[in-house]
């Protein structure tokens, strides 16, 4: 088994790794709403401090988080720029056609920038410190209410866990087949669009076949061991609340109170 990184989980031993996945997922989710309570400098400072503490709590290198923000940088800058040039109010520093540069604009741009960045950073903290399987289990728990309206949440969660489980397997398989075809002179990296799409057949067909084989084998193995659907099944990975989770919850409650009081 190779140990490729699925999702963005990075193994570590900091306290935050011990937090229950449900707690982390819930806090991340609520943080997105909580950040809208922030509306002035002190509240943004508190939210930034909270995020900074979370990041330091992971004990990981800074570039991990930069990697999380990087894909979104353009979007963040674009949104901030819109705020910067299209808000009116406050002192006007500059005015040209429909574009305004005002004190309100500058402040709004900074706030929007912070809001986006903090949300991405907090979700990065969650995804790098929680195993994908645990996230999938936590999702199932969060989606429990949907069960009451007939959504097969448990089955969906199982499908997701199985898919996650086979990401590394299929990744290995892809690499192996690609190398085997390269050894036979296949060229995946040159030529125009048509040549490249033709070149992909020797990769896609074997991959498709082995995925089907894996799926059939897995289904047979599950049925052979008595799988009949998910109702009444107990679980192997049991999520359980620990005393550390009080820290997670406590910190978030403190954040909410401060945002409310200072806002």
């Amino acid at each position: 088994m190779t140990k490729i990184i699925i999702g963005r989980y990075i193994p570590g031993s900091a306290l935050i790794y011990k937090f229950d996945a449900r707690g982390k997922l819930l806090v991340t989710f609520l943080f997105v709403f909580a950040i809208f309570l922030a509306n002035n400098w002190p509240t943004y400072l508190v939210a930034t401090l909270y995020t900074g503490l979370a990041i330091m709590g992971t004990g990981l290198r800074a570039h991990v988080f930069w990697d999380g923000v990087k894909p979104m940088v353009l979007l963040i800058l674009f949104t901030s720029a819109l705020q910067l040039f299209f808000s009116t109010g406050g002192t006007v520093y500059f005015h040209w056609w429909g574009l305004w540069l005002t004190s309100t604009g500058i402040v709004n741009a900074i706030f929007i920038f912070l809001r986006f960045t903090l949300i991405i950073l907090i979700s990065t903290v969650m995804t790098v410190t929680t195993q994908p399987l645990a996230i999938s289990d936590a999702m199932e728990w969060l989606l429990t209410p949907l069960k009451w309206v007939g959504v097969p949440v448990a089955q969906l969660a199982l499908v997701m866990s199985i898919a996650l489980r086979f990401v590394p397997t299929l990744f290995d398989e892809t690499l192996k087949i690609m190398n085997a075809q390269k050894a036979r002179g296949a060229d995946f990296n040159s030529g125009g669009l048509i040549k490249r799409s033709k070149a992909i057949a020797p990769l896609i067909i074997p991959l498709f076949i082995s995925s089907l084989e894996i799926a059939v084998d897995l289904a047979t193995a599950m049925e052979a061991r008595g799988y009949q659907g998910t109702s009444g099944r107990t679980r192997y990975r049991v999520l359980s609340w620990q005393k550390y989770d009080l820290l997670n919850a406590g910190a978030f409650v403190v954040l909410l109170i401060l945002l409310k009081v200072l806002g």
């Binding site: 398989e173 192996k176 087949i177 190398n179 085997a180 075809q181 390269k182 050894a183 036979r184 002179g185 296949a186 060229d187 057949a201 020797p202 067909i205 074997p206 082995s210």
Partner: peptide
Amino acid sequence: RQQVSLVFQFPEAQLFESTVLADIAFGPKN
């Protein structure tokens, strides 16, 4: 790659053509 070739563990996973002959001819054609 033409002079030095490699047969992987479980090479049957690399088959993809519609006929046996076409699959064997894939390398020479490349």
